[in-house]
């Protein structure tokens, strides 16, 4: 290979910069066992939940199944912000919890290994980093949603649940949750940027937000006051819950808007923080 002695400096365009950063992140994603482990977890968890709810109790009686329909493993029958049973909670939204942990491990290793130095040496613009991580992690969470769907459907069929469903609503619910992955991935990327020096805290914070416990708590208060809960859809967890088996096109539009707006917000804030603080 011949190398030039000329000193030419051509500034790469935003698209070129993002392409190279995305290339690195996708390469890493497909070469890291963590991604495949979490894909497997996403497939196994719905199967486990389905099986566990069918287990006999202490008296040997078979427990009443929590689900009556295969698709309840994928999405709730209606937007249930306040949960009463595990079935209200245990659906594809759980992927956002595993996704948070996966994203934290994925991004945390950038810092633990020191590879982030290579990224920031050659990429002066911190926006590249935030956007690339958000997009790649969103892709990973979407894959986990797909894995959850496959695992949940198989488990539901094996247990013998009903398949009856409004297909349109089911598709919108799944697509809506997948769309929400971008917003969640941006939140986790942002949390990992804030806690970049504290690997454990970044995992714990992603888990905490992923559970949606803040929205569940807020919903309990709002319902207690007999106020409408619709405004909770402006939050990531709210919109993720809203994507359920009675979803319509309006639900999907809300999911897109909420996901994109939070993505823009977290990316802008994360970029600002990275630009104004020491990165390594």
């Amino acid at each position: 290979m011949t190398k030039s002695k000329e000193l030419k400096f051509e500034s790469p365009s935003f698209a070129e910069r993002l392409k190279s950063m995305l290339g690195v992140d996708f390469y890493r994603l497909f070469h890291t066992p963590v991604f495949y482990i979490f894909l497997a977890i996403s497939a196994i968890i719905p199967a486990m939940v389905s099986a566990m709810t069918m287990m006999p109790d202490q008296n040997g009686n078979t427990m009443e199944p929590l689900y009556s329909n295969v698709w309840q493993i994928i999405a709730a029958t209606e937007p249930l912000y306040v949960i009463n049973t595990i079935a209200d909670y245990a659906n594809m939204n759980m992927v956002f919890i595993f996704g948070g942990i996966m994203v934290s491990i994925f991004i945390g290793h950038d810092y633990k290994s020191g590879y982030v130095k290579q990224l920031f040496t050659t990429h002066a613009k911190k926006q590249d980093y935030m956007m690339s991580k958000s997009l790649v992690c969103a892709f990973a969470i979407v894959c986990m949603c797909a894995s959850y769907f496959i695992g949940g459907t198989f488990a539901g069929l094996l247990v013998g649940y009903s398949l009856e469903v409004n297909v349109g609503s089911l598709i919108i619910a799944i697509v809506g949750k997948m769309v929400m992955s971008l917003g969640w991935a941006s939140l986790y990327t942002f949390l990992n940027v804030i806690f970049r020096r504290y690997f454990g805290i970044s995992i714990a914070s992603s888990f905490f937000f992923g559970t949606g416990i803040l929205i569940i708590g807020a919903a309990a208060i709002v319902e207690g006051l007999s106020l409408p809960t619709g405004f909770l859809n402006v939050f990531l967890y709210g919109s993720s819950v809203n994507a359920c088996l009675v979803s319509n096109i309006e639900t999907l539009v809300i999911c897109i808007l909420v996901s994109v707006l939070w993505t823009v917000f977290y990316n802008a804030l994360g970029t600002h923080i990275l630009s104004k603080s020491d990165v390594y």
Partner: peptide, 11 residues
Amino acid sequence: TDAGVRVRVGA
């Protein structure tokens, strides 16, 4: 901070 020059820095 110029992207053109930084892409030619090895560290």
